[in-house]
């Protein structure tokens, strides 16, 4: 017997009392499922059981009629579930205080993205203090898996997923590839 594999309590229960559990395989095969016996007379005329069942369902019905507010269903477009603080919704790009995009086109998010949904075209920034900026920043939301790795990867906190927007359906595919304007301003 492999000493690394210890018999669990369940295996021990299945084995006959007093017997040493031999191999794990035998222990697994030891659980015997009894054959179904024919039900008692009381059960086989159903009536009591049917009434029990009916009582369970009517309890649900009455509770739901009188306490509709306690029902888990929400009247969705009008009432929405409160999102967690860390909910990852649609992305947005952050701006500096002067209104220019924070993004320095370092390609970290593009590299980190497992779904390959971000594509950045970089150019030299006129301000010598900043190395680069993104000429194009296209985010294909149809490919996005909302893992949040781009947010983690960003060294300058330029991309966030904190908009809380999750109703992203649209009528054309083109509009689901967000450009830099969209991500900055909406």
């Amino acid at each position: 017997m492999n000493p690394a594999i210890k018999p669990t309590t369940r295996d021990a229960k299945a084995a006959p009392p007093g017997a040493q559990p031999t191999t794990p395989l035998a222990a697994l095969a030891g659980k015997k499922i009894p054959r179904p016996t024919s039900p008692s007379v009381g059960r086989s005329i159903y009536i009591v059981e049917v009434v029990k069942g009916l009582l369970i369902t009517i309890r649900h019905l009455v509770r739901n009629v009188f306490h509709q507010s306690r029902m888990p269903t929400l009247a969705y477009p009008e009432i929405r579930r409160r999102l967690g603080e860390r909910f990852r919704g649609r992305h947005r790009l952050m701006k500096r205080e002067d209104g220019t995009p924070k993004c320095v086109a370092c390609m970290c998010c593009e590299t980190a993205c497992p779904a390959d949904c971000i594509s950045i075209v970089a150019a030299e920034h006129p301000d010598p203090a900043i190395e680069k900026y993104a000429v194009r920043f296209d985010l294909n939301i149809m490919r996005c898996v909302f893992c949040g790795l781009c947010v983690e990867a960003c060294p300058v906190d330029a991309i966030r997923m904190d908009t809380g927007k999750y109703e992203l359906a649209d009528e054309s595919r083109d509009r689901l590839v967000y450009d830099i304007e969209f991500l900055l301003n909406r």
Binding site: T57, I58, H60, L61, N64, V65, Q68, M71, P72, T73, A75
Partner: peptide
């Protein structure tokens, strides 16, 4: 409505 309430749903509304 009965089906919905028995199954803890709101049903047609």
């Amino acid at each position: 409505k009965g089906a919905a309430f028995i199954q803890d749903r709101t049903g047609p509304n």
